[in-house]
Design a protein around this nucleic acid. Structure first.
Lengths: 205, 205
DNA sequence: GTCTATACTCTGATAGAC
DNA sequence: GTCTATCAGAGTATAGAC
């Protein structure tokens, strides 16, 4: 790979794969997968389409690999945010903030994983769904743990709570405006209070 | 326009415009805007690309017109669901169900309005954002009315409530499965109870 | 591993007869 | 208004030298 002139130099610890995928993710996020050409991706990496093809046999395979990395990022971000936090309610609060941060501000790949699923068909689509499910299972486990400790009211459907909650958080990426009236922290706090007031037992708040 | 053979006959009251846009919306929903060709749209209407071009000078202009119609559908569905309902809390409940129903089961156009916004650029994009804002304002008014009657707790940020709530509802369209364990009614009830428990004053539940 | 050059396909849009 | 025919451009992917 040639030295990159116009772009940030690549942190030495990062692999070539991550560099390429990060560049692609930024383009996919801004322009969408279909409207981004392989030529543009190659340019963003200071290489030519042929070199990109050496790494990935097709544009679609690049997207799939990008989504694999996105899952790793999301999972480890969630783990980092909650590890070592003993209070399970606080764990939930931090998880919400971590998800929001990563999606809106932290990782173009996670954004792409969540918003470009319609670009994949057949087998690749199924793999992407499996990736998402693995991330959702982390959330399911967290909620389940809260419920079995009696912190979440027993009559709350945990699946629907997870689906609706993450859905609302994901959608933030469609309207969030850095210069807008709400910071990510404002939004995280709001969601946290809403969930707390709706499903957490009084004694545990 | 030729008689349609393979497709449902068009209800006489519906305009030609609506027929074409409905066909396009179904394709856009299933395959996405970029992956749908004008040829496919024309075929779905039993015409040829040339005839479609007589109606819309470009593929993009068709999408914009589709979104205009989607806004009308969404607005009137919301109005229909809440008109004549005197209890404002019940209005909110019905609004939630109406939005869910329309998006997931009722109108491909509304789905397209919400999920294909990234396909538009520049001026067309701005018009689409304006269309969405007009729909959101209907919700804002409903929530504002509830708040000024003291039904929604005074400390709740109505903008964030609307954005997060509609976001969670919109996201349902990405995971809902007709054969799954949850019916639209289940989901509507869940969301309604969540919002109620979180922000509606005890006395008004 | 990277480059140059190109093959092949598909697409949106147009022109003009009827 | 609808048709036939076609264009110009873009896009992915490939081949093969270096």
């Amino acid at each position: 790979m040639k030295k990159r002139k116009k772009h940030q130099t690549r942190p030495v610890a990062e692999s070539d794969r991550e560099f390429v995928l990060a560049a692609a993710a930024a383009l996919f996020r801004e322009r969408g997968y279909e409207r981004t050409t392989v030529k543009e991706i190659a340019e963003a990496c200071d290489m030519l389409p042929g070199s990109l093809h050496y790494r990935y046999p097709s544009k679609e395979s690049l997207l799939v690999d990008l989504m694999r990395l996105a899952l790793e990022q999301a999972s480890s971000a969630l783990a980092r945010a909650t590890v070592g936090v003993s209070d399970p309610v606080e764990q939930l609060r931090r998880g919400i903030n971590a998800h929001l941060d990563l999606l809106v501000d932290g990782s173009d790949m996670v954004y792409v994983l969540l918003f470009e699923w319609r670009s994949l068909r057949g087998e690749a689509r199924q793999e992407m769904i499996d990736l998402r499910d693995r991330y959702e299972r982390l959330w399911a486990a967290m909620l389940q743990s809260l419920a079995s400790q009696g912190i979440i009211r027993a009559d709350v459907d945990l699946n629907l709570l997870r689906l609706f909650g993450l859905g609302g958080l994901n959608w933030v990426a469609t309207w969030f405006d850095k210069k807008g009236r709400y910071s990510l922290e404002d939004i995280g706090n709001f969601v946290w209070q809403l969930i707390r007031d709706a499903v957490i037992n009084q004694a545990d708040r």
